[in-house]
Amino acid sequence: MPGQTPDSNLIRGHLDLILLSILHGEPKYGLEISKQAQERTGGYFDLRVGSLYPALHRLEKARFIRGEFQDSSRGGSPVKVYALTDEGERELETRRKEFEVFSANLGQLWRMA
């Protein structure tokens, strides 16, 4: 939904799910993650650095993602690239299902209103 951004509390509440979803597939570093969040949603998700890196470190600590420094494709300073672990894949699946059930039930409430 271009031109619209979600409430910051909504982002905060679902940040882990957003990050795990973006990291599903190719490993990525912080800047790529934040760009993909924007590009793949037409600018809807604008992840700020202040919440992005603490969240990545939290997920790494929980062993849902693994980070390692690699030389960037543009040369120069190394970047820390994150990939989903097997545990992270399972976590993503669980959270995705939970969210779908939650969202479907919320939809029920609106239909009944």
Partner: peptide, 17 residues
């Protein structure tokens, strides 16, 4: 040191871009 290197990497790549 690790966070510093990570943020520095982010900054350097973005500056290049």
């Amino acid at each position: 040191r690790a966070l510093r290197a990570e943020l520095n990497g982010h900054i350097r790549v973005r500056i290049q871009e």
